[in-house]
Design a protein around this nucleic acid. Structure first.
Lengths: 207, 207
DNA sequence: TTGCCTACCTACCAGTAGGTAGTGGGTTAA
DNA sequence: TTAACCCACTACCTACTGGTAGGTAGGCAA
């Protein structure tokens, strides 16, 4: 019937595990998540989970890899769109903001990984993003040199922007308490997006 | 002699534990830190540590309380200084930036707590900061209404600023890899501080 | 039928977690 | 001297961790 064939149900279970692992690692961190938690969320036992992934570390690695590749894909797509000046920056900003709004768990895992200093993986988070970072620095500096953007330290500007964007999603429960409203509801997310865009526009463009 | 009296040496051990616990919780998180780690760092066994603190949770609570009270103290002091307009904002910004530069472990714990949604404590992080947040919102809005500051959403502006400031410290290892330099050395920290100040000034003041 | 495969299971391993009970040395004070 | 207290210790508990061993049910191909 619908899932009689073994390859189909196989992929499905594997993906269910990846989804649940993403949720758990984002929610409770690497150390705070047990394989039992993940397995229970999928409805199987731990050994069955370990049939699909050789170890906890490997599972975490796969979750993280999927996350990074999706992010880089979006970045690539945004950069490929022909545009210049502020419009270009806005395109990239929106690409990130959209992805993070769709999957805030990505943000939470990334933050945890940055906090932990990349202990759980061989992967070097900053190394993967480095090409984009360098390209962005070059772009910003050229715009500043042409007088299009306000003169600022491009590297620090990017790090500041990274923090400004991600924090809203990663610290959503904390934000909830500050604004007395669900940070992750549609309206608030849209407000955050427009605020970030407007804020950077105000800082970078002398009106 | 210098530490012969029992209350003094008691306090000393207690403080050593608090210091080591701060370091460990900041470095590896609540789940990733064992009482053995902390005890070993102080040079005692776990049961001896539990003689000074009734439980891991209580120890964590004390660490966090010390942290928050120090932060609030700094904020109070900064707010008390008579100033207005941009100068006032800069005073508060610098007070936070200075504290975080002195004790980056504070920042890392706060971020972890925000990420975990305050699971490890009864304390509600956003509740404690709420009075300052509300006061800051009021101040910013009054400045915007007077045309001193650019018109922006004050709440989102504060959250953005919070993220922009803290991220540099909390994600220092990640930043290292991006800028190819030790993010926590004196010069880079100073650069970050001046960048944040300059960035907010550029966004808030129409020049 | 036979044999191999996948996907799951129960049962178990060694190791470590947080926490408790009870011991004993050292200092202090009566 | 004796009694008290403080503080650190060893030894132990239960619960749970990641991971493994071995077994089983069902699908599929020769």
């Amino acid at each position: 019937m619908s899932e009689a064939t073994s390859p189909e149900s196989n992929r499905s279970t594997r993906d269910q595990i990846l989804d649940e692992a993403l949720r758990c690692f984002a929610e409770k961190g690497y150390e705070g998540t047990s394989l039992n938690d993940i397995a229970a969320g999928v409805g199987i036992r731990r050994p069955s989970l370990l049939h699909h992934f050789p170890s906890k570390e490997a599972l975490y690695g796969d979750v993280f890899e999927r996350l990074m590749s999706e992010w880089l894909e979006r970045l690539d797509a945004a950069v490929a769109v022909p545009a210049s000046g502020w419009d270009k920056s806005e395109l990239v900003l929106r690409a990130c903001l959209d992805l993070f709004a769709e999957t805030p768990d990505y943000v939470r895992i990334m933050r945890r990984e940055a906090l932990d200093g990349g202990v759980h993986l061989g992967i070097d988070l900053s190394g993967v993003l480095r090409p984009f970072f360098d390209a962005a620095v070059q772009y910003l500096e050229s715009q500043m040199a042409q007088g299009v953007f306000t003169q600022l330290d491009a590297r620090h500007l990017l790090i500041t922007g990274y923090g400004a964007i991600l924090t809203y999603f990663s610290d959503a429960p904390f934000v909830d308490g500050l604004i007395d409203s669900d940070a992750m509801n549609e309206k608030n997310i849209r407000d955050h997006q427009e605020h970030v865009i407007g804020f950077f526009k105000a800082a970078l463009l002398k009106s």
